[in-house]
Nucleic acid binder design. Structure first.
Lengths: 218, 218
DNA sequence: ACTTTAATGACAGTTACTGCCAACAAACTG
DNA sequence: CAGTTTGTTGGCAGTAACTGTCATTAAAGT
């Protein structure tokens, strides 16, 4: 309907979304490293910008607050779950699907990023500003859950029941992620704790989701 | 064990917690009013302090950020639920208890405060900083739920299952509060929407809490 | 009155961010 | 190639949210 692309495009084209994403992710990694090394409060925006090799001005153009610099990395982690959720085949229960398909570390990315993410999750318990950013982030991810669940339950996404299920799922994920971060603190990420994590998540979701088993949902 | 009160107390005594609370609540009311009138970004700390009749310095001593000024008011709302939860008698299911005992507006406080709280909840959808403060606040309230549920389920509060149930309950409460704020936007708080809210909350909690019915819990 | 302890207010200082504009980069046009 | 157009970046000044410090005042006891 709109005549998109019809205008013969003059001047420099805007950078692609992927490139933007890469830049943000790059900054995010440096920021998280600095946060972990010296604490959030002791890390200045100027420092982050220098480490990432950009000017402070562009840093603030990419992120509204310095705490939000953790977003791209954390989003990668949440994406692991989102992917699995999207791949949830009809007819099979959510819990059993998770048990077979959810491998949080492998899908998400390189091991270093995973460690960094876990470090952030641990930091959120002591740094209030970071906790706030973390919670906002998780809530944004809830939207995705809402969409998937809405389709699953055959209701519009804005439905109260759908939102309740999505919020519930999100809450369970948060506690499970927290527990996972706690248990991997000393040792690295062994296949054991990974399995425990998946099992714990599946178990917990089984506790609170009645209507999402395979038999209930058309 | 400690020789508390043994030292014959010299000098001016520190102000009581109630008085502190009153001061914070007073500031909170002014802050919320200003936020609602002109938006969060357009309201400065100096303005809040002037409206509340204190110096800016003491404002920052009471609240770490200007968004956190909404805390005392919002906490009052959450307290309404906490009270009901604490009054939850053994042997009776949580849902039926809520259906009979939960009257969010009446317990909490004066009608003006309730309207202010709802205004804040609505504002959180457009003001990111406010949303962050709101989410942090709600998560702090989760601790209380954890304690009550832990006692109920006969487990230590740090247990994974207890935390899952508490987080779930918290998530449901959030969605319900959100819906309540949305439905009361034009009209005031009629007994009708109030009843709908209670019913909706009870229904939603029934959906996601299996183990908290009267028969399941000893 | 004098001491002691706690709260407040005033003021300077830091820093997270914002607006603004000049400089530069990447496309197309002649 | 220069010239134009459009988008991105960087520098610099400014604002406002806080923080540290200290003098002043308030509320108690002796």
């Amino acid at each position: 309907m709109v005549d998109s692309g019809r205008a013969p495009r003059r001047g420099r084209p805007p950078v692609s979304d992927e490139q933007r994403g890469r830049q943000r992710l790059d900054i995010s990694r440096h920021a998280v490293r600095l946060f972990a090394e010296q604490g959030v409060a002791a890390t200045s925006g100027e420092q982050i910008a220098r480490a990432a090799g950009v000017s402070e001005r562009t840093l603030w153009r990419c992120f509204p607050t310095k705490e939000s610099c953790v977003e791209p990395l954390l989003t990668k982690m949440l994406d692991a779950f989102r992917t699995v959720l999207h791949a949830w085949p009809p007819g099979v229960g959510l819990i059993e699907h998770l048990r077979t398909a959810y491998q949080p570390v492998l899908d998400s990315s390189s091991g270093e990023d995973v460690e960094a993410v876990l470090a952030v999750v641990r930091m959120t318990h002591d740094e209030p500003a970071l906790r706030a950013a973390y919670l906002v982030l998780r809530e944004r991810a809830e939207e995705t859950f809402t969409e998937v669940l809405a389709e699953r339950m055959g209701m519009p996404p804005a439905t109260f029941e759908v939102r309740v299920q999505a919020a519930t799922m999100n809450a369970v994920l948060k506690v499970a992620a927290d527990e996972f971060a706690r248990e991997t603190v000393g040792r690295g990420i062994t296949p054991e704790v990974l399995k425990d994590h998946r099992e714990q998540l599946a178990h917990a979701l089984g506790l609170v989701t009645r209507r999402l088993s395979g038999t209930d949902v058309g």
